[in-house]
Amino acid sequence: MKSPLALRVLGTAALAAVVLWTVVPLIWMLMGSFKSTAQVTSPDPVFFFLPTLENYVRLFTGANNLSPYLLHSVVAAVGSSVIATVLGTLGGYGLSRTKMKGKASLSFWFISTRMAPIAAVVLPLFLMFRLAGLVDTLPGLILAYLSFNLPFAVWIMSAFFDGVPPSLEESARVAGCTPWQAFWHVALPLSKAGLVTTAVLCLVFAWNDYAFATIISGPNSQTLPIAATQLVTQTGVDWGQLTAIGTIVVLPMILAGIAVRRWLVTGMTLGAVTGE
């Protein structure tokens, strides 16, 4: 199907506009992080400048060192992602293969827990954590992130396991494998891509969280997004540092997301849509 030249030019122009729309804010943030304070808040935008590492250096030296925040973010995100993926893989396989009666209700429970409004969940969780002494601790934050990552992992892994024909495991069973061996040596290797996608998406969801961290975390457990918003004060905003933190928060997640691009549709639609 060939379209007229004019239409194709128009299409290309529209696509260029789309790409500019999605990319310009991120490029501008990246550029801002390498600008001096005067350049980053110049009334006329500065497009050409000599890049400086000043903002990053200031972030990791001096009074408000970012390193503890970075550490908290990494521990909370990786911790909840690993636990969610391990438990979710086991649970998801169980959910996919079980023939129990309440299967439909059980899976509905998983998905509604995943989708529960954060504002509604954090309210009772805050009280529970207060009673249990988990407020402002990293285990508390990991648990809070598990409240959405675990049901996500179970649900999505179950969708991935649904794509593995059970007949393969049945023949393994006939050949003398235990149910565990059939799971471990047959079903699991075939779902490796799903496993990686699940882990990466859990990592992104937890790393990007702001709502839970603002309530559950405190001085001993604050994460990067909190550190970023704390730079916004009544007296003014240090946009140089802010764009630098933004870059540190965003860059690893973009790389991780792109790495699992092929399975992203499945992951983000909770298994409702399968990609090419």
């Binding site: 999605t22 310009v24 501008w28 990007n208 764009t243 928060v249 991780a256």
Partner: peptide
């Protein structure tokens, strides 16, 4: 092309908000 279009999806929503503030700041926003 898809990679470039998908980028915003991975940005933490709080950072989207802060970045938005930076972009529409009346004195120096792009």
């Amino acid at each position: 092309l898809m990679v470039l279009v998908l980028l915003p999806m991975f940005v933490a929503p709080s950072i989207v908000g802060l970045l938005g503030r930076y972009l529409v700041d009346p004195t120096f926003g792009l």
